[in-house]
Amino acid sequence: MFEARITQGSVLKKLVEALKELVTEGNFDVSSTGLTLQAMDSSHVCLVSLTLRDDGFDHYRCDRNMAMGIHFGNLSKILKCAGNEDTITLKAEDNADTLTLMFESANQDRISDFDLKLMSIESEHLGIPDQDYSAEIKMPSAEYQRIVRDLTSIGDTVLISATKEGIKFSTSGDVGTANITLRHNTTPEKPEEQTIIDLKEPVALTFALRYLNNFSKATPLAPQVKLSLTKDLPIFVEYQVGDLGNVRFFLAPKIDD
């Protein structure tokens, strides 16, 4: 039996909204330590990795490891029926073919339950190496969202260069060119408004803006985002979801033919 209860149900709603356009389906792998998901986009150039820890839930029980195949568009339809203040409980019997979602209003005067049909999904699990990156940038997630949104209106790809001067995002397209440079800035009093650049060596990589823009759909989940870059390797974009876990995106760089 699997059961996970979260008082702040809006977090689950935001998570699924952040992922559903990038990945259409994937397995929720549940075990006694929590719920994880690893999924690729349809062209297999980016990878999403979601980790929700058992102790981040208000109640968590998982007697047996299970892979629950989820269609995210369908899960999104069901979660749209939950109120923002609702407590959400996920439930499944061992080897079940449905996942039950129970929504309880804050004052417990409305209780609803929905069964989501599960799918059988073959998925390969990739090993993400734990490595040191040449540059790590922590910045307000809203700032990242604004940069990639603005640049998407100008070009298709972005060159991200990290140097001791700061981190520069450059693009070009039919209308012209654009450069946005962010500097290390720890003066804001609130830590979530700071930009922290940890540079071991300069690095410059090109990425498809469409994906970076898609990752920013996770902005409502976290005040800060971390970008990690190393030459010839995928960019790693990470949002910490409070005490519950994290959502991580990896995107392969564009390289010259």
Partner: peptide
């Protein structure tokens, strides 16, 4: 420009 698939960076675990 070309783009490799993500599995070419991260092997199967």
């Amino acid at each position: 420009m070309k783009q490799k698939q993500i599995s070419q960076f991260f092997g199967a675990s």
